[in-house]
Amino acid sequence: MVTVKLKEIGKNFGEVKIINGVNWEILKGELMVLVGPSGCGKTTLLKIILGVLDPDNGEIYFNQKLMNKVSISERNVGFVPQNFGLFPHLNVNENIGYGLKMRNIPKNKIEMLTNKFIGMLKLEGLGLRATNQLSWGQRQRVALARALAIEPSLLLLDEPLSAVDWASRKEITDEINRMQKRLRITTIYVTHDINEAFEIGDRIAVMHDGKIEQCDRAECLIKTPKSNFIAAYLKNRRVGK
């Protein structure tokens, strides 16, 4: 469990500025939602934190440790992409245990931990199934179990509901909330849906044109939007929370 701090992060693709001086702090154990319209730079920022992309400038800290030069495989970040990213040639058990195997954990311990997460995410009886024989909801839970099994310092969820049918959405957001509260893993949840952001996040960071425009609790965003963009963006929200 870490505090994540980004200082003046910038990233260009050719001449195009995708991330434009992002300063952002995610607290230990917090469920932070990163929301913004498509193309605002959310996924790029997530990939920088994950370690897939190097920022052109700026610094990334996990607690007080500078992470810019730390490779993706050493960051200990659990990542669940939009399409779940399950390994199609491995069954459910093997998918969940993959990260443990890469850490050279003994076979019997891998089995024990895999069973623990199978139980925690209600996947009992599915361990030997091929991933293409699972429902969308089950696939999402396998991807989450696989990311959690490595006991990550940070969990990144990139639009986790985008490939999920409407019937499974509530079930999955509840599952993510329950897991996050139980394990208290620092989590960044990316979405373009403002309603989803308000339903799930402790705090919400609104991104626009490569910058975090405001990062606050839901009620503060509503009461005191810091820009016209945020005020207009929040109007798309269904009335509720």
Binding site: P81, F87, Y98, G99, M102, R103, A147, I150
Partner: peptide, 17 residues
């Protein structure tokens, strides 16, 4: 493009693994 290799690395796999 599927990002499966990125996921494998995020789970701790080296480039070779």
């Amino acid at each position: 493009e599927t990002e499966l290799e990125v996921i494998a690395k995020s789970l701790g796999a080296s480039e070779f693994k």
